[in-house]
Amino acid sequence: MHMKVQNVMTTDVASVEQDTPFKDIAELLIAREVSAVPVVDAGRRVVGVVSEADLLRKEEFRDQFYREGYRPPLRARLRDRLAGHAGHAEARGEVAADLMSTPAHTVGPGTTVVTAARLMDEHGVKRLPVTDDEGGLVGIVSRRDLLKVFVRGDEDISREVRDDVLTHSLWIETSDVKVATCRGVVTLSGHLRLRSEARLAARMVRRVNGVVDVVDEIGYDEDDTPRWQAS
């Protein structure tokens, strides 16, 4: 439960320094097949992020490719610019410090994947550098990494629900509760003494990594729910 960024992040991180030229940044993005890289200082502390969009934000390049609504893939545009415009970029001295977006939005290794996903959505980014307490780069987490949480096998999910949630996390007798998982949807059936216990079990199962939804079919002997909560 509550899987952390450190469980899914990539530790082999492509990064650049503040004085890395435009051409070297573009070639790195193409070679590593990534859309952005962190920019670090001499102490490997993250000071910004430079993306494909940052490299292509120059007015003359936008005019060249956006006429008549034509929008080729970013990486293809980078290759074209390297072929025909790299000399101009180098002449202007474009380096990472001039091109990067700053401050960088980062997360720590202990951040939950849910929090990381919310930060990506809030800031409109596809990946977040992962930093230690001193701001040093230790990894990077992408949207694709976060999706790993939801591709767990059904049996693996059922096992965690039975062993961690029902057996160890709930201080109640749950031996009559049955668990079945299909494509991430967990169905709970069987019997508990109180309705509040059945509700609690369903809520905790929803927090298990990889659970898409919970179907609560647990019966109970006594409805101990206050009237204002009964619906």
Rank of each mutant, 00 (worst) to 15 (best):
S196N: 10
I140L: 11
V50Q: 06
P21G: 04
V185W: 09
V185C: 12
Y70M: 03
S175E: 15
Y70K: 05
E94Q: 10
L188I: 10
E90K: 15
R77S: 02
A116T: 00
V107K: 03
L29N: 01
V40I: 12
V49C: 10
S189P: 11
N7Q: 12
A97H: 10
W171P: 11
T115W: 00
D176W: 08
D221Q: 08
E155N: 07
M120P: 04
A14R: 02
M204E: 14
I172C: 08
S196I: 02
L188V: 07
V138N: 05
E52P: 01
P109S: 11
A26D: 06
P72A: 15
E33I: 03
F150N: 13
E17A: 05
G87D: 14
Q64E: 11
E68C: 04
R127P: 05
V186F: 13
R127N: 03
F22S: 02
K126T: 08
A91S: 13
A117Q: 03
D213V: 07
A116H: 02
H88M: 09
A202Y: 03
G93I: 15
R195G: 14
P129L: 08
P73N: 15
D41G: 07
A116K: 03
H123Y: 13
M1E: 07
E197C: 06
L146K: 03
K126G: 11
V151W: 07
L166F: 02
R57D: 15
S158G: 15
D163V: 01
A31S: 13
R45V: 08
A96C: 01
R44E: 12
E197K: 01
T20W: 02
R143D: 07
T10K: 02
A202L: 04
S142M: 01
S169R: 06
R118F: 11
H85C: 12
G153P: 07
D41N: 15
T225N: 12
R62F: 01
H88W: 14
K126R: 15
G48C: 15
R67V: 06
T115M: 00
G153H: 09
N7L: 04
I25H: 05
S231V: 09
E217L: 10
R71M: 02
L147D: 01
V46G: 05
R57W: 13
S51A: 14
A89S: 13
Q6I: 14
R159A: 08
R44T: 11
A86L: 06
H123A: 03
D121A: 15
M100G: 00
D213T: 06
P226F: 13
R92E: 15
A36M: 11
N7P: 00
E217A: 13
R162K: 05
L55N: 07
E134I: 04
R57C: 13
T11E: 11
S231Y: 10
R62M: 11
R127W: 02
V179I: 05
V205T: 02
R67S: 11
G124H: 09
R152P: 00
V185F: 07
G210S: 15
L74W: 09
E222L: 09
S51W: 03
R152T: 08
R127Y: 03
E160F: 07
D19Q: 06
A86D: 10
